[in-house]
Design a protein around this nucleic acid. Structure first.
Lengths: 376, 376
DNA sequence: ATGAAAGCGCTAACAC
DNA sequence: GTGTTAGCGCTTTCAT
C-alpha cells in the first residue's frame, strides 16, 4: 500500500516522481484517452472487464488517477472554496469566535464535499498574489475592513463571494447580525440598571494602528463596519438617555487580545475614574477589562460593571454580561449561501439573531455601597 | 472598486460572468499572449508603458488576471498544501489539540505564502474522491489510523507527504513525540506516588466503534499508533513495578469528548472501585473523568488520582496532572518539513519533546485518610 | 462501447 | 522587448 518514494532512483531528483499520465496509460493499453477517462469518471460507459484492465494497468504503472489541476481546468470546477480572513491565518485559531465560524464553515463544506482553502493573506503584507493564485470556485470573506486590498482582489475574481460580518457591500451576498440593534439592547440594559457614566473599549477601527482614544470622527469613519455599528448603537441609546456621547471615553486597540483589553481598560479608567460601566465591543477585550479591574482592586460588578460582545465560552465561564451571537451558524450560513448555486440572481442577506446574556458582571452602579447603607 | 455582479445582463445566467482570457486580451491589444503573461509575471520583461497599457486594458475588459488553475497546470505548482484529518473537518475546530496543530501549520504555510486546503474526508464516508480532487503540492496527514483509505489515497498521489503523530510509516516524513516514553514517565510518577491499582481510559483504537473494555490483544493490535504507544508505555512501566497488566481495566471510547471520558471513567470505576488512579490517554477524557469523580463524591486527588495527556489549556486550568506536548510546534514542524524542498532524499523524522506537568489531580493513594490518621 | 478531435487558459523556451 | 511554438493533462461532444 505504501509507496516507496525515496528509492535510489529518486535520490538525485528534487521531484518525487514523474508519474504516468492518462495519455501514456491509454497508449500502454492501446485504447483511447477517452476510455481511460471514462474508467475513472463514467464507469458505466465501458465494460467492467475493460475498466478492470485499465485500473489494474494504472496501478502497475503507478498512475495516480487523473490530475486534479488538469481536471479542474477542463471542468472549470476547483472543488474548493477560499476563505479570506482579516488577520493572520494563524490568529484565526486563537480567536474563539473565528474558530466557531471556521467550524460552521467547515461543516457546510463537508456536507457539500468541498475543500476549504485558507488563503494566506496577512493584513500587513499587502501581497494580493495569494488571492490570485487560489484555485477556488468561490470565496468566503470573514470580517475584513472595507478598504482591504485582498477583498478588492477577491471581488475582481469571476467567482461568487459571500461576506461574513463586514464589510456590507451592495451586490455581494452577506451573512451577519444586526450589530447596532444588539448593542442598543445591551446599552438599554445598562441604562435600565442606572448607568450614565460609561467608558468604551473597542477593537481596531481601521487598518492603521491607533492604540488610544478615539474621536467621534474616527468612530464614524471606521473602516470596520461591525465596530462602527456597535459604537453607533451605543451612542444612540445612551444619547437618548441623555448622555453626551462626545464626552464618553472610547479607547481603541489594534490587537485583539486579553492584554489589549486590560491596557485599554486601564486607559479609560485613568481618564475617568468615575465611570460606572465599561462596555467592551468583544468578550476578549472584556476579559482583559476584568483583569484590569481586579488588578485595581475594583470589584465587579459592585464597583464597576463590565460587558462584552460575542458570547464565547470563556466569557460564559467568567459570567460575563454580553451579547451572544451564533458564530458557528454564521460559518454554516456563509458556506451554504456560497455553495447554493440556486437563485444567485441578486444579492442575498442572512441576518442571524443575537441574545443578551445577563451575567454576573453587570449590576446597578454602586450597588454594594447602597446595600451597605440600606441593608441587603 | 466593487464589481456589480448582479447586473441585469447577468440575471439570466447561472454563471457570474464569462471573463476575458489572456488570449482575448492579447488579441484586443494586438500583442502576443507572452507579452500579456509577462505583464503579470515578469514586469521587467516589457516596457513600463506597454505594461501599463496591458493592465489598463485588462481592467477595462474585466480581465481578472491569469486563471490560477490554468497557471497551476502549466507551472505544476498549486500553491497550496492539503491537510488530511482523522475526524470530520468540523471536529478539528472543537479539539484544542487539533486547533493548536492547525495554528502551527497555518503559521508555516503563511510564512511560505502557501495556501492550506482542508480536505473534506470524513472517516465514516469512505469517499476518497476528495483526496483525488485536491489540487495541492503536498499533504500533511494528521493523526489517522494506519488503515485509513484516505491516507492510502494520499500516498498514491505523486506529491510529498508529511505525517503528524500517526501512523508511523517507513519512507514517509513524520513529526511526532515519543508517546511511549512520555507515558512511561507519567507511569513512573504514579508508581513513585505509590499507585499499583490503576484503571485506564483511552481513545479510539481502531476505526470500528468499541465503547467498552479492551482486551490486551486489541491493545496490541490498535490501528492508532499513538494510543498503542501510550498503552504500551503504561503497561511496560507498571509491569516493571510488579503490576499484572492483564488485570488492569482499560476502557475505550470512540468519541473524543468530555462526556465520553466521564462515562468511560464510570465504567472503569464500576468494574473495579478499588483503583487508586485513573490514567486517561487524553486531557479531554481526563476532564470527563474528573466530572465523573465529582459526581460520585470522590475527591481528587484524595480519593482518586486522575491524569491526562496533551497539556491543553483547559487541563491546565483544572490543575490536571498530565503530559504536555508541543501541539503548535508539531504543526509548524510538519509544515516546514513539507515546504522545505531541500534534502528530500530520505525520510526525515522530527521528534519533539514532552514535559510531565504535576498538577493537583495526582497524589499518593488515600493520602487524605492517612492525613486524617497521622495528622497533617 | 470506443475513438478522434478540439480545446480549457496558461507559461516557457527559444527565436527574432 | 516581443512573438512563435509547444505543450501542461485532462474532458467532452460527436462520430463510429
Amino acid at each position: 500500500m505504501v509507496l516507496n518514494r525515496y528509492g535510489p532512483s529518486m535520490a538525485r531528483s528534487m521531484h518525487v516522481r514523474r508519474p504516468a499520465t492518462l495519455a501514456s496509460l491509454a497508449a500502454e493499453l492501446g485504447v483511447s484517452r477517452t476510455t481511460v477517462s471514462n474508467a475513472y469518471n463514467r464507469p458505466d460507459q465501458l465494460s467492467p472487464e475493460l475498466r478492470r484492465r485499465v485500473l489494474e494497468t494504472a496501478r502497475r504503472l503507478g498512475y495516480p488517477g487523473p490530475d486534479p489541476v488538469a481536471r479542474s481546468l477542463r471542468t472549470r470546477k476547483a472543488g474548493a472554496v477560499g476563505l479570506l480572513l482579516t488577520e493572520n491565518l494563524s490568529y484565526a485559531f486563537r480567536d474563539p469566535a473565528a474558530i466557531g465560524f471556521l467550524e460552521g464553515l467547515a461543516l457546510a463544506c463537508e456536507d457539500a464535499g468541498t475543500g476549504l482553502l485558507l488563503v494566506p493573506a496577512s493584513p500587513e503584507r499587502e501581497d494580493v498574489a495569494a488571492v490570485h493564485r487560489a484555485g477556488v470556485d468561490g470565496f468566503v470573506v470573514y470580517s475584513v475592513p472595507d478598504d482591504d486590498p485582498h477583498l478588492a482582489a477577491v471581488l475582481e475574481r469571476p467567482v461568487p463571494t459571500v461576506v461574513c460580518d463586514q464589510p456590507d457591500l451592495d451586490n455581494v451576498d452577506r451573512v451577519g447580525i444586526d450589530d447596532r440593534a444588539a448593542m442598543r439592547g445591551l446599552a438599554a440594559h445598562l441604562i435600565a440598571l442606572g448607568h450614565r457614566r460609561v467608558g468604551v473599549v473597542c477593537m481596531r477601527l481601521a487598518r492603521d494602528r491607533n492604540d488610544g482614544f478615539v474621536s467621534v470622527d474616527r468612530q464614524h469613519a471606521a473602516h470596520f463596519h461591525v465596530q462602527r455599528a456597535r459604537l453607533t448603537g451605543l451612542a444612540e441609546e445612551f444619547a437618548e438617555a441623555g448622555v453626551d456621547w462626545t464626552r464618553v471615553p472610547v479607547v481603541e486597540r489594534f490587537d485583539h487580545t486579553i492584554a489589549s483589553g486590560a491596557s485599554a481598560a486601564a486607559q479609560v479608567l485613568d481618564r475617568d475614574p468615575g465611570i460606572t460601566a465599561l462596555v467592551c465591543t468583544s468578550d476578549i477585550l472584556a476579559l482583559g477589562a476584568l483583569q484590569e479591574a481586579e488588578r485595581r482592586g475594583l470589584r465587579v460588578p459592585d464597583d464597576l460593571t463590565v460587558t462584552g460582545f460575542d458570547g464565547i465560552h470563556e466569557a460564559e465561564r467568567a459570567g460575563l454580561t454580553t451579547i451572544r451571537q451564533p458564530v458557528m451558524e454564521k460559518g454554516r450560513a456563509a458556506g451554504k449561501l456560497l455553495l447554493d448555486a440556486s437563485e444567485r440572481t441578486r444579492p442575498r442577506t442572512v441576518d442571524l439573531g443575537t441574545e443578551l446574556i445577563t451575567g454576573r458582571t453587570a449590576a446597578a452602579p454602586h450597588s454594594a455601597q447602597e446595600e451597605r447603607w440600606f441593608g441587603p
